[in-house]
Write a protein that binds this DNA or RNA. Structure first.
Lengths: 190, 190
DNA sequence: AATTTAAACTAACAATCGTTAGTTTTGTTA
DNA sequence: TAACAAAACTAACGATTGTTAGTTTAAATT
């Protein structure tokens, strides 16, 4: 089934609802009501509830993958790479807030091929980011630390930034980027 | 209905399942099967599925509240206070991993009084932690930054640390504490 | 050993779930 | 204007949901 304009409306509305209540707590009747149609009518446009979740999550995952591929082998410092990753997370946070929240909260409700693809992309992403950190330590740009814990510290904040952003939408992307770069890379102590 | 030994077993098993699949994706039949009894038998011990979620989450929330109250007005430096908060998060992460994950993922499925109580405690907790940061900036212990963003950066990592810990249980609490203190307070750049 | 209590069971309920079939309405093209 | 396609509708399905009622078994107490 093709990705028509109407189908994208349905997916966007679903992302909004999934984000607020979680995939399993949103019924097809809830989704239909939000679109002011009946539940059965949804199936003129989509194949299943599962398909909607897959579209939402894999689209975001591909955005992350694409950016990481573009920055990963570049011949620049680890810190510049990390800054680029941070910037990308912020951009996706701003542009695809709902879908990003879905990815974070409901990826485990993907099934079969969609779940496989997602996990594949996530593992690859984390491995490449881990390499950046490792390289940074070897080149003495970063402090000697537990690599996996550094990786987690960065990602945990970047992944859930949408929680902060949705309550602080007035802040400019530039300022957000500068502050996050400081917090994550330089810490908070004077 | 009193909190008997059996009831605590049910709650602990539920926390494990809720953590893996989410509150709404776990049926009472799933929970019963994990305990090797029939679903109806659960109701000899508990009043409702909702009650289980409330017990899991409010217990953890009270732990956080209690510790924050004990450290909040103390006459010590902001940094020492923050270190104590970090330490407490790590301890709860280790000791109540499943329940902490439930709190993070499923608090929005609490209802009525439980939801009110949880939100009340969370708001108070965040306000007190915000005060610690504000005080730290005023006393020149911390850098001048967006307070709310600093607060979020710290909490986002601390709250989801269970995701890292459940895959790295071999690390000692002391080492984990030292590394997290470094990452969160001093940053990662050399 | 008799009695009481705790904790399991079977059976079933009303409600809700995702989804399908078939039909009607709406809007566009020939 | 007639024909066609897109997108809504009504009605209903089988499965699953949380929960209740009533019963039986096991354990503890008298």
């Amino acid at each position: 089934m093709k990705l028509t304009r109407r189908k994208l409306e349905i997916v966007a509305t679903a992302a909004k609802l999934f984000r607020k209540k979680g995939y399993n707590a949103v019924s097809m009747r809830d989704l239909a009501q939000a679109l002011e149609i009946k539940a059965a009518s949804l199936y003129n446009h989509i194949n299943s509830k599962q398909e909607i979740l897959g579209i939402i999550i894999l689209d975001v995952a591909e955005n992350f993958t694409q950016h990481m591929n573009s920055v990963s082998p570049e011949n620049i410092s680890s810190i510049k790479k990390l800054e680029s990753v941070i910037e990308n997370h912020i951009q996706i946070t701003i542009e695809k807030t709902d879908a990003l929240a879905c990815l974070n909260n409901d990826w485990m409700h993907l099934e079969k091929l969609d779940l496989e693809n997602y996990l594949m992309m996530r593992n690859t992403y984390e491995a490449k980011m881990r390499n950046i950190i490792e390289q940074g330590i070897q080149q003495k740009e970063l402090q000697e630390r537990n690599i996996d814990l550094v990786l987690f510290s960065l990602l945990s904040t970047l992944r859930t930034l949408h929680l902060w952003y949705s309550k602080n939408k007035e802040v400019s992307p530039q300022l957000l980027f500068e502050e996050m770069k400081q917090n994550l890379l330089h810490g908070i102590i004077r």
